[in-house]
Design a protein around this nucleic acid. Structure first.
Lengths: 188, 188
DNA sequence: GTAATAATCGTATGTCCGTATGGTTATCTG
DNA sequence: CAGATAACCATACGGACATACGATTATTAC
């Protein structure tokens, strides 16, 4: 419902109707509406996180380069198809409310921090294995990569002509400035 | 009021009270509440745009490098002090609503496009004058720079420790990957 | 089997809000 | 000065919504 018509068209009674239950039952599960929305935000956040984790796991088993796996993981956040656009709308709507709700802000901050940490870890792993030069600061690089990914997502969603087509390439180029080498385990 | 307590605590009557006038007078100026909010969004958007334009004008008269002026212009969007944090809250709150309001979305898209165009223009000017290499695509570079700026703003606002301190440096480093040369008019 | 707990419903209540209405006063214009 | 337009106010109306409440049925546990 948030993806379809926005957060402020979500009412308790509409939610109940959509779930095929009564208002009273919704109240039985959530003390207050805010609790319900917070739960929804947590749920969608972990959903995204788990999907990304799946991409990473898949990439690891197929022994792909860290840069390639990271690219797929980051691209998972880009609103390039309809389900991801819907997800984007939900997350952004919550992010807007998070400006004035500590509870939502904490979820927002936690997931952002987790993303940053994962990217930084990828960079450090890359440095250990040879894909990343030894003079690269992992946290600085992670901040930049996360920022580009986030900013690109916004631009893709807004649909400036041509951005969507090149978003993935732009992300790859950005990663290319950090992942400059090749993993030693792949060399002869 | 939006900056203080968020968009959804803004009611017509509270707005009237804050402006020291009656509800009726607010209605005299705005046919509907949404018109009022749209006006507010347009106002804050042009306010930011004009401040940035001022920075650019100031930089041009002092004959500073394009990269330096652009850095100041972009840094103007970072929520590094309280007024700018307030501005950020307002813009982001509206951006959240813009997901479901075509009128707000148009303002959002227009200002984003204007920012992108200004950055691209700076890059092209840089190429003409020698600060930027001739093989750089201005639009691609602008997309990346705008994305980093936007993403950094989010991260600065969220206040991850240490990000604020290095945000300006990160921005400068990003510009440094595009503005690699020196303007010919400064050379002997 | 019974007591307790969970699931489930329908409705009532009180509040808040956007907008409509009808009016009065000031300001400008010719 | 007359008349029109703009500035301005108080209040009423109607709707929507979050939550409270009281009740009923199903499920579980002892």
């Amino acid at each position: 419902m948030i993806a379809e018509t926005g957060l402020d068209t979500v009412t308790v009674s509409r939610t109940a109707a959509r779930a095929g239950m009564s208002v009273g039952l919704v109240q039985h599960y959530f003390r207050a509406k805010d609790d319900m929305l917070l739960h929804a935000f947590q749920e969608v956040s972990t959903e995204v996180a788990e999907r990304v984790a799946g991409v990473v796991r898949e990439g690891a088993t197929h022994r792909r380069t860290i840069a390639d796996v990271l690219l797929d993981a980051l691209a998972e956040h880009l609103p390039l198809d309809e389900p991801r656009r819907a997800e984007f709308r939900v997350v952004r709507a919550f992010a807007g409310r998070a400006l004035d709700s500590p509870a939502l802000a904490e979820v927002d901050a936690r997931t952002a921090e987790a993303t940053h940490a994962e990217i930084a870890r990828a960079v450090r792993n890359g440095a250990e294995c040879g894909e990343v030069g030894p003079d690269v600061d992992a946290d600085t690089a992670a901040t930049r990569i996360a920022s580009v990914a986030e900013g690109l997502a916004t631009r893709v969603y807004r649909g400036a002509p041509g951005v969507a087509d090149h978003a993935r390439a732009a992300l790859r180029a950005e990663l290319g400035t950090v992942f400059t080498g090749r993993c030693r385990q792949y060399e002869g």
